[in-house]
Design a protein around this nucleic acid. Structure first.
Length: 910
RNA sequence: GCCCGAGUGGCGGAAUGGUAGACGCGCUGGACUCAAAAUCCUGUGUCCCUUAAAGACGUGUGGGUUCGAUUCCCACCUCGGGCACCA
């Protein structure tokens, strides 16, 4: 019987589904392990070979952990709310639910073909009301909570109301509180709630008709669609993520994530420890203290001007009547610029003088106050002290407007550029003179605090997450407006289902839900925006633990058993979006006692992207003649993408090319050595570049086991690499060889013969390597080890069951279909999934050499590593060689001399 | 500009202080075959050389540490990723 992968794979996929082989239930007798993939957004294009890379890696890990005796939770679901489905609906009038269902069905069948060990009974989809009920539930919890800085955690809002009523809080006295109207009370509480409604400047995308989060915008364009994004002031629902900044930062230390990913999160959180300092200012006789934030308190002696953000409310206060016209003109100019334009023109310095002056608190000098767009209103206090000598932005500004520059660090040359580094010795700085910069910063902070000029302050760049989207295909907010006061629905009304609407297009910033009929609760209007994509993906890993529970997000029992995700596999593109929001969401649930772990993803592996490898043909301009790549420079040619599926090893299939598109039917060719060689490039895998490779085709030609093996053999999981089928025959050949260890045509070769030492060595080398490699995700080297083992065993003509049986178990995480088939052939009625990982015996793999401990000088110990066959004379010779080389050893204590047959190679220090 | 990460044969890559290039692809020659496919065997870093032996060189570049460096340190170059007026 030959290796008939089509038959074998279909047979086992059917059986796994029928017998629910991968169904998992909580089992306190076994240790648990939770392996999670980032669930996909089911797009219309279906899966290409890049998508399953991470799924294959995590599936191998899950199967390995099962063999090791763990109760493994390995679920899969769909992130099904989102813009593309809605955009498609706008274009075609099809309901997004319909296209989403179709796409999911397609994804499911593609995934099933690859042989994953998901427990599909636990599958979730974010657009399912039974699922988004819990997204809405969590939102209400956030609405009903505030962040208590004293306890450093979220607490019920009732506690805050109680404080306002009885003792007062944050400058509001009980008397003031009691005097407030309901609306005023509601507005006040909005300043504290974790989920709150607030006026804010948002990224508005006219084309998409919605606001976007900062991580949904890149270079002033929307990440999805690439449409322009502008700034606009709007009342939006927001999540107080910033309250968790310090905990989100500190929590990173405990996580097994890559350094680069942690670093990205740290940058995004952007902690900055500095000083808030008060400068007195004077505008037409009125005095107004303004607060600035700086990390360089040591440079106050070099402050020669101050700058306000154009959006700062202080601008109105500090503009003198003489400057009013000029300032107004500048504000007009700034307001007409989009965020994109502001970013694009960072070198073009603009600004205007306000007319008023501030007083340097240390020198008492009068310094002008300017207004410029280079100061951001959203960070710090929206006002800065400018030190042109030691800040490059202030320097450029000072040069442009001829403001004085005072150097404060000895030897710093500020004639051409500023000296930003925090090093050197202070000068021109009063009591700080002579100090190194770092020391001066601390001394200045102390001085400022001691003299009541300001205080130490930590700022974070992390902003609150804007949570409203003016679109249809998302979770509706469980909020209604009772006399204008936002009020949550009672839990018993959840889920609040998405209403039907007639047209999906939004106009003039009006949300699609505004057109829904009877979108009210008890006669009061319901909120018309919907939640963003990250809402549904923030706690999905919890729902997998207990997916059918309709009274709780997750039961305490299920949560205590599964706790958190042990291994999370996904791409880096979610580094600062999903992975921040999810951690925030989880920490909130932790605060309210809903979950028992405060970090959701203990270990995270980022799989690399699989890029496409595009092929090109070259058409002579004005003709229908195509020249091979080596000849293209002789003519003027146009480069044209050609479907990679009609190119094999960069050689174009001429007939297939003529048939590809009508305009090439009568194409002519100029060949090289009788062949047409295509050019190539590594690009993103996409339809428009004709470089998409579909996993179904690979499964059809080579089988799912080959696909799995090949994707892993391509290189390290974390690395990005182009898809290139050149090597796929190699792994396919390996599987056929593996098969032939067991079968010669129809004859099963397995016997009860005792294994030889060489056979045991080959097996146990592999067992040891597999343990090590899977734990470190070095799947590619492990497959190499498999190839070596199979070659050795083939050569040894192994038939021993004691070798072959464990070998099948070792193969099963990588090529589960073949492993099941062979396992059954070996006489097992149970799935190979239920087998145990073979026990590793390192004694069976020792080298044919022996270590001779040798003392030297009574102090150092040497280990001489010699072949067993070495004669005493050879050992002596090796040892005699030691003193010469050992001279260099100094106070090292152990030295190993590696002896390859006949010659001393080197010494090992330990 | 700032912060990460990476540079090894014709190609994907292996080796984390100890015989560089495992394993696979490709290519060379051969066996089987009428032939092909499939399968198996052989060789395959570069230079010198008809070939082989022997030798020299060789992990982006230049220095350093070490008996010994692809691996550790410093500087530079190139590529990839992230952040980018965050005071």
């Amino acid at each position: 019987m030959d290796y008939d992968f089509r038959k074998i794979e279909a047979k086992w996929q059917k059986r796994w589904a029928e017998e629910k082989t991968y169904k998992v239930v909580e089992d306190s007798s076994k240790p648990k392990y939770y392996v999670l993939d980032m669930f996909p957004y089911p797009s219309g294009a279906g899966l290409h070979v890049g998508h399953p890379l991470g799924y294959i890696a995590s599936d191998i890990y899950s199967r390995y952990k099962r063999l090791c005796g763990f109760n493994v939770l390995h679920p899969m679901g769909y992130d099904a709310f989102g813009l593309p489905a809605e955009q498609y609906a706008i274009q075609t009038g099809q309901h997004p639910e319909k296209t989403t269902d179709e796409n999911i069905a397609r994804y499911r069948s593609q995934l099933d073909r690859i042989g994953f060990s998901f427990d599909w009974d636990r599958s979730v989809r974010t657009c399912d009301p039974e699922y988004y009920k819990w997204t809405q539930w969590a939102f209400i919890k956030m609405f009903k909570s505030w962040y208590d800085p004293a306890m450093d955690k979220a607490r019920p809002i009732a506690e805050l109301i109680d404080r306002f009523e009885h003792e007062g809080y944050d400058g509001i006295t009980p008397q003031q509180w009691k005097a407030m109207s309901e609306k005023e009370k509601s507005d006040t509480l909005m300043n504290y709630r974790i989920a709150y409604l607030g006026e804010t400047s948002v990224n508005w995308c006219e084309e998409l008709g919605t606001v976007l989060a900062n991580d949904e915008v890149k270079d002033g364009l929307s990440v999805r669609g690439g449409y322009p994004v502008v700034q606009k002031k709007m009342a939006q629902w927001q999540l107080r993520v910033s309250a968790y900044a310090e905990r989100l930062l500190a929590g990173l230390d405990k996580l097994e994530w890559s350094d680069s990913l942690k670093e990205m999160q740290r940058n995004w959180i952007g902690k900055s420890e500095g000083t808030e300092m008060v400068f007195d200012t004077e505008c037409e006789g009125r005095h107004l203290p303004i607060t600035i934030f700086t990390t360089r308190a040591d440079t106050v002696f070099g402050v020669t001007f101050m700058v306000l953000a154009p959006e700062s409310p202080l601008v109105q206060e500090l503009t003198t009547s003489g400057q009013k016209a000029e300032v107004e003109e500048y504000l007009q100019y700034v307001s007409h610029k989009t965020e994109r334009e502001r970013q694009a023109e960072t070198k073009n310095v603009t600004g205007v003088f306000s007319g008023s002056y501030g007083i340097n608190p240390l020198t008492g000098e009068k310094i002008p106050i300017w207004i410029s767009e280079y100061v951001l209103s959203g960070y710090g206090t929206g006002a800065i002290m400018a030190v042109p000598a030691h800040d490059s932005r202030d320097y450029v500004f000072a040069r442009k407007f001829n403001l004085p520059i005072i150097p404060l660090i000895e030897g710093a040359d500020v004639s051409a550029e500023s000296f930003d580094a925090k090093e050197g010795t202070m000068m021109n700085s009063g009591f700080l003179n002579g100090m190194p910069v770092k020391q001066a910063i601390e001394a200045a902070k102390d001085y400022v605090e001691a003299h009541g000029l300001g205080r130490r302050k930590t700022n974070y760049r992390l902003r609150d997450a804007i949570f409203s989207r003016q679109r249809y295909w998302g979770e509706p907010f469980p909020i209604y407006y009772k006399d204008g006061i936002p009020t949550p629905l009672p839990d018993s009304e959840l889920p609040l289902r998405l209403p039907e609407i007639s047209s999906f297009r939004s106009q003039h910033g009006e949300a699609p839900l505004e057109r829904a009929k009877d979108w009210t609760y008890k006669g009061y209007p319901l909120e018309t925006s919907t939640m963003p994509g990250f809402a549904g993906s923030s706690a999905y890993y919890l729902r997998y633990m207990d997916p059918h529970n309709d009274s709780e997000l997750v039961s305490a029992d299920a949560d205590r058993y599964w706790r958190s995700v042990d291994l999370y596999v996904g791409g880096t593109e979610h580094a600062v979006g999903h992975l921040i929001y999810s951690r925030f969401w989880n920490k909130f649930l932790y605060d309210i006692g809903c979950v028992c772990e405060d970090e959701p993803f203990r270990k995270l592996v980022n799989q690399g992207m699989i890029q496409g490898r595009s092929n090109f043909v070259y058409r002579k301009v004005g003709t229908n003649t195509f020249v091979s790549v080596g000849l293209k420079d002789k003519y003027e040619t146009t480069e044209i993408h050609v479907d990679v599926n009609i190119v094999h090893g960069d050689k174009l299939d001429l007939e297939a090319f003529k048939a590809w598109r009508p305009e090439f039917a009568d194409a002519e060719f100029e060949l090289e050595n009788g062949e047409y060689i295509c050019g190539w490039a590594v690009e993103k895998m996409s339809k428009s570049m004709y470089n998409v490779v579909n996993p179904d085709e690979i499964c059809e030609t080579y089988g799912a086991d080959t696909l799995r093996l090949y994707e892993m053999f391509l290189g390290p999981v974390e690395q990005s690499k182009p898809w290139d089928t050149k090597g796929i025959d190699g792994v396919h050949r390996f599987l056929k060889k593996f098969w032939r260890l067991f079968f010669d045509r129809d004859t099963l070769l397995v016997s009860d013969a005792k294994p030889s030492a060489a056979e045991l060595k080959a097996l146990h080398t592999l067992i040891g390597k597999e343990q090590e490699d899977i734990e470190s995700f070095s799947y590619n080297t492990n497959i190499s080890a498999f190839m070596i083992a199979v070659n050795t065993l083939t050569e040894l003509k192994t038939s021993s069951r004691e070798i072959l049986e464990p070998l099948v178990v070792l193969l099963s995480p990588f090529a589960p279909h073949m492993a099941e088939e062979l396992w059954e052939a070996l006489g097992h009625s149970d799935s190979v999934t239920k087998a145990a990982f073979p026990e590793f015996n390192p004694a069976l793999i020792v080298e044919d050499s022996v270590k001779y401990p040798v003392s030297f000088n009574g102090k150092m110990r040497f280990t001489v590593d010699l072949p067993k066959s070495a004669s005493p004379a050879e050992v002596e010779a090796a040892v005699k060689a030691l003193p010469d080389t050992a001279r260099y050893v100094g106070n090292q204590t152990i030295v190993k001399v590696i002896v390859v047959p006949g010659r001393i190679v080197n010494i090992v220090l330990k």
